[in-house]
């Protein structure tokens, strides 16, 4: 029965203390939110934590959901904010690490698990570069490219979720890919 309801109706039920309603919302969105967090953060454990925090924050603030925006927009907004918080925390941690490490270069810290490229394959190195390139995109561009590739949303869906004109979404995806191309051409030299 819950499967047939819209997201907005499920939120209403969740507000009225229906324990299964929010579970259904989570079931619908968990893969996409996890994908968004993975694309934004580039690490599985960080993505898992961010997605978990997203759902907790959503549930805590569910009474504040006014219904003016779509549930997908609301969840994406929370998730992106959560990812940014996670990134800030990671940056603070990395700065503390660098301080402790006597100022080791950032390049080495960014991929601490891959300090020995000798035992990694070329494909793995390429993935690291791509991850870094996506991670260095501005948030608005990174968000649309992650929604497009990881969540596999259409331009129309992204437009509705972000409450942006369709042309803006297309333009952002295009700009994101162009910037990515330039970064991918530059990064191997910086990393290598």
């Amino acid at each position: 029965m819950l499967k047939e309801l819209t997201d907005e109706k499920l939120v209403e039920l969740a507000v009225s203390k229906d324990p299964d309603a929010f579970g259904e919302i989570m079931k619908r969105w968990e893969r996409k939110i996890f994908a968004l967090c993975f694309g934004m953060l580039g690490r599985e454990d960080d993505a898992r934590d961010a997605a978990q925090e997203t759902f907790i924050a959503a549930f805590r603030n569910i009474s504040n959901f006014r219904g003016e925006a779509k549930v997908s927009s609301w969840l994406h907004r929370i998730a992106v904010n959560q990812c940014l918080t996670t990134k800030r925390r990671a940056k603070t941690r990395s700065e503390e690490f660098l301080d402790d490490d006597g100022g080791e270069s950032e390049r080495v810290f960014v991929t601490p698990a891959h300090r020995s490229p000798a035992n990694t394959t070329e494909a793995t190195e390429r993935l690291i570069i791509v991850r870094q390139a996506v991670s260095s995109l501005p948030v608005d561009l990174r968000q649309v490219i992650v929604m497009k590739e990881f969540e596999e949303m259409t331009f129309q869906e992204i437009s509705e979720t972000l409450e942006l004109p369709l042309s803006t979404v297309k333009s952002r995806v295009y700009t994101a890919l162009r910037q990515l191309r330039m970064k991918l051409e530059r990064l191997p030299m910086e990393i290598g």
Partner: peptide, 22 residues
Amino acid sequence: SARYEVYDWKHIEFDPLETPRF
């Protein structure tokens, strides 16, 4: 090609991951 790189990353690293239990 830029899009393919992102697609490849997703295909290799994300697709095999199971959705965590939240």
